[in-house]
Computed example of a mutant assay.
Amino acid sequence: MSIRQWPAAERPREKLLAQGAGALSDAELLAIFLRTGVAGKSAVALARDLITDFGGLRAMLRADLAGFSAARGLGPAKYAQLQAVLELARRHLAEELQRGDALSDPLAAERFLRARLRDLDHEVFAALFLDAQHRVLAFEVLAHGTIDGAAVYPREVVKAALRHHAAALIFAHNHPSGVVEPSAADRALTERLRQALATIDVRVLDHLVIGEGVPASFAARGWL
């Protein structure tokens, strides 16, 4: 039976319009994106199979062009559409941190940083630069690394803070392993950066470690 023959309350699109996107399962949301199924399978059934085959929705969203396009019912056109949707989501989160806006909601920074860093397959160290009123000045990636590390130099971070005329920073880096627990090296680096930035009167407000689940916050743990 095709989705068009389902009761209206069970069709993903109608269900979304009536109850909101949060009421839909991963497969139902993906089915709306797919629009159509394949021979012998509805869009919802195909979506369930794809999520299972990829090992989860997030793994599917992270797939490269070749891996994504090789799956039944997908292809380069769908890959392009999906990347556009993901980029729209990132830009939507970035609008919460528009230049000149006061950072009144710390969770907005967390959502933005998670969206930018969580799904990378290599380690990246980045910072949000803020003025004295904690208004966002800029976001900048300060270092790219391998699967397990990124070289961060305090002198370059100080230069970046001066370039952006920052009064405060929020650091963030990702752990590609998914484990958010900060390492001893993470703590040591943060302390070196804090000391270097203190010489130019720039405060480090937090350092977030991004991975699976809730990011680890140095500030919440009393480490800053």
Rank of each mutant, 00 (worst) to 15 (best):
E123A: 14
A184Q: 15
L82N: 05
A80W: 07
A77Q: 15
L107K: 04
S217I: 06
A43H: 06
R135W: 00
E14N: 06
L46S: 03
S69P: 03
E14P: 08
A127N: 03
L24R: 00
L128T: 06
H173A: 10
S104D: 05
L162I: 12
I147D: 15
L24G: 10
K159Y: 00
K159L: 09
D26I: 04
L61R: 08
T146K: 15
E123H: 02
L193M: 00
P154A: 05
F112D: 05
L120E: 01
A161N: 07
V85P: 04
L61I: 07
A219C: 04
L30N: 09
W223V: 08
D206I: 10
Q5W: 04
L30V: 14
I3C: 08
S177P: 00
T36M: 11
L34T: 11
A168I: 00
R99G: 11
R194M: 06
A185S: 12
L137V: 13
A77L: 11
A63D: 06
L189P: 00
T52W: 10
A84M: 08
E181R: 05
D105M: 02
L197H: 07
G20M: 09
D131Y: 02
W6T: 12
L130S: 09
W6R: 12
G100C: 13
T52Y: 13
G75P: 03
A18F: 03
I51G: 06
R11P: 06
D101N: 15
F129Y: 05
A47C: 12
V214F: 04
A102Y: 00
A220D: 08
H122R: 14
R4G: 11
Y153Q: 10
A45N: 06
A31F: 03
A18R: 15
L50S: 05
L16D: 11
V85I: 06
Q81I: 07
V38A: 02
L162P: 01
E10K: 12
E14V: 10
L86R: 03
L16E: 13
R203V: 02
L107M: 11
A71H: 03
A23W: 08
H207Y: 15
L205K: 02
L205V: 10
S25I: 01
G149V: 09
R11S: 05
H175T: 11
Q133H: 09
F68N: 09
A71E: 10
A127G: 04
K41A: 08
R163T: 15
G22S: 12
A66H: 14
T199I: 02
Q98K: 14
P76N: 04
L17Y: 05
A160E: 03
G20V: 01
H207F: 13
V214M: 03
M1K: 14
A77P: 01
Q83P: 04
A71G: 09
F33P: 05
W223K: 07
A198S: 14
A109M: 01
A43Q: 00
L117P: 06
D131H: 08
H134R: 08
F125I: 07
A161Q: 07
R118D: 09
L24W: 02
A188C: 02
V124Q: 08
A8T: 14
A47P: 03
L117R: 08
L65W: 04
L65Y: 11
I3F: 14
L107Q: 15
I51V: 13
E123T: 11
L130C: 00
S25W: 03
F171K: 03
G145M: 02
I51L: 01
L30K: 07
L65R: 13
Q133V: 08
A108L: 04
M60R: 03
Q81M: 12
A27D: 12
